[in-house]
């Protein structure tokens, strides 16, 4: 009888050990892949203040940094994705010229989120507007609805992707404010790459943050403010 029990004990021990060996690496990888499991705080609202006086015409360091960070080809064909682009504008009445980067404006009331049939376009609690690539069916309604042309459609198969930024043929994508970097406590690639420090990134809701302090003292505008979308990206000097 006791011999049988010993065998059972030995079997259970081996099984438990084997199970632990089988599961542990998976758990470790799961943790590594997901990083922090804490939910995003709704108290934060990430945003940017772009000083157009510091943004130089012809400079596209932010565009290059975005392409590298997110694994974009950098192509300029009408079918290529451009998450951020440089726009040169000239006031028709005064002739004043300005250069500025344009990307998803991370609206508080994003039209892309309203129109998306599957809720693949969504706004995170911290104000970042994203596309769930597993849910996007590629109807392109968000591209029609976006007032800033901030979205691109992936027109062809994608190879050599950045593991942090999964993309997929047949789905829509746009600036994610480098959400994977923000979640690691880093700043978006465009903000860190700007040689003139024209892009100030931070928490709009935190009165002590540099962005909130600067917004209190300088005149800033939202692009197409008439649409009342309350964008997270603000421009100075427009």
């Amino acid at each position: 009888m006791s011999e049988v029990n010993n065998q059972r004990r030995a079997f259970l021990k081996t099984s438990l050990g084997a199970a632990a060996v089988a599961i542990a690496p998976g758990m470790l990888l799961f943790d590594m892949a997901h990083g922090s499991t804490e939910p995003v705080s709704g108290k934060v609202r990430w945003g940017m203040l772009i000083d157009t006086n510091q943004c130089k015409p012809g400079c596209d360091e932010c565009v290059t940094a975005c392409n590298t960070e997110n694994g974009l080809s950098g192509g300029k064909l009408p079918t290529d994705s451009q998450w951020i682009r440089k726009i040169e504008i000239k006031d028709i009445s005064t002739g004043r010229q300005t250069s500025l980067p344009m990307m998803c404006q991370h609206c508080e009331h994003p039209p892309c989120v309203d129109v998306c049939p599957t809720a693949a376009s969504f706004k995170r609690a911290d104000g970042i507007v994203l596309v769930d690539r597993h849910r996007c069916i590629g109807c392109r309604y968000c591209m029609m609805a976006c007032p800033y042309k901030a979205r691109s459609f992936v027109h062809e198969p994608i190879h050599d992707q950045n593991p942090d930024v999964p993309r997929g043929k047949g789905t829509v994508e746009g600036c994610s404010m480098c959400v994977h970097r923000i979640d690691e406590g880093l700043q978006p690639a465009c903000a860190t790459s700007c040689p003139n420090k024209a892009i100030l990134f931070g928490d709009l809701n935190d009165p002590t943050s540099p962005i909130a302090q600067k917004l209190r003292v300088v005149a800033s505008t939202q692009v197409r403010a008439d649409l009342k979308l309350n964008t997270g990206i603000r421009y100075q000097g427009l």
């Binding site: 989120v113 309203d114 998306c116 049939p117 069916i137 997929g168 043929k169 047949g170 829509v172």
Partner: peptide, 21 residues
Amino acid sequence: LGRPDRIIVAATNFNITSVFA
């Protein structure tokens, strides 16, 4: 659609504010 294979996603995830939905 870009992903016609995901038609079941359209049928099971319903965004109430979308006129497409």
